[in-house]
Computed example of a mutant assay.
Amino acid sequence: MVAAIRRCGSALLALLLGTSVLIADAASADDTPAKALFGAKSLPAQMAPSSYGFYAKGCLAGGVAIPTDGPTWQAMRLSRNRRWGHPQMIALIEQFSHDAAEKVGWPGLLLGDISQPRGGPMLSGHASHQIGLDADIWLTPMPQRTLTGREREDISATSMLQKNKFLTVDPSIWTPSHARLIMLAASYPQVERVFVNPAIKKKLCDTWNGDRSALGKVRPIYGHDYHFHVRIKCPEGSSTCKDQAAVPAGDGCDKSLAWWFTDEPWAKPKKKPGEKPVKPRLTTMADLPKACTLVLNGPAPASEQDVTFGMAYRAASPAPAEQGIEQVIGNAASDLPPSDVPVPLPRPTLQ
């Protein structure tokens, strides 16, 4: 009897100690920038695949990595460890690369950033890419050889814009294949938006003679003259992920595009006399959906090979979220920003 009581007491103490550790960890993370915490994770959370939150305010459970090399793609900037995504995003990239080769004659995709292993804010470069549903594709075609690790770090993507000429596509670089590649990306039903430079959007508006039904998905934004940004919708049936507002009707070749060719988007913010600069507030764990704490602290797989998939992998339907996480987040929508939050940020960031 005494032994049994001692065992129960030891178990209770262990539980209390474990709970204290979790509370201490949470407290210590309160003021730590979330980007530092997520950026330190080299492997994903071994949970059912789920995107939590919004594209610019969330995290990713059950992420998978696209192989560094495939028959129709090569991943770039491997040192960043950002070739992770929701299985549906990775499956789309692989399918897109295959279709681009077959239907466009594109030599192969050079892949930029997708997401960190557990999503979340990044140490540099992006406001979005936090829930594993965004991917950057270079506008530079893949060479017909395997790039070295050093080349993947040092090679720069090619801008499609003319030097010293405002928002003008360079006709010596831009080709009809670039147009077909971007429009192919926009044609997939699961793709919500494709972000490009305003000059590229205008070029498509002026020259695209094919089916224009998906042209409205191609959205102008700062930067994005070296690459285009593919965003897919939240997985069907997901209650933990918030889609962006629907794309307006039409092809987008209207006043909303013309605005980018005025002075207003490029004007420096006006400061009041004597106004002190506001120090940017860094995102902490408290700003993210509650489930992201569990994702951050979740178990990792034994190795990257356990969560890397090739062309044989297809995410036909999203897996259910972990029950424990569902219980923690409750009503997920209460943790999310309004759907009209502009993403990417309305000012250029490093890409």
Results as ranks from 00 to 15, higher is better:
H86A: 01
I329P: 12
W73S: 10
A319P: 13
D113C: 11
T175I: 07
A312V: 10
S50I: 04
E304S: 14
A199D: 04
K103T: 06
Y52Q: 02
E153C: 08
T262A: 00
R281C: 07
D25N: 14
A199H: 03
S339C: 11
R231I: 09
S20K: 03
Q190L: 07
Q244N: 09
P337E: 05
V191I: 02
T308Q: 12
L139N: 15
L204K: 06
R219T: 15
G223F: 04
T284S: 13
R314Q: 15
A315Q: 14
A3L: 15
A27G: 14
S10E: 14
A186N: 04
W266N: 00
D335G: 14
L15A: 15
A14G: 14
A14F: 09
I66F: 05
H229G: 07
D306Y: 07
G53F: 01
L15T: 09
G274L: 03
D211Y: 07
E304R: 15
E236F: 08
E322Q: 11
R193N: 08
L184V: 01
P198L: 03
A214H: 15
H86W: 02
D134Y: 07
P269H: 07
K272Q: 12
L60C: 01
H86K: 04
L16F: 12
P346H: 13
L139T: 12
M183R: 08
P44Y: 04
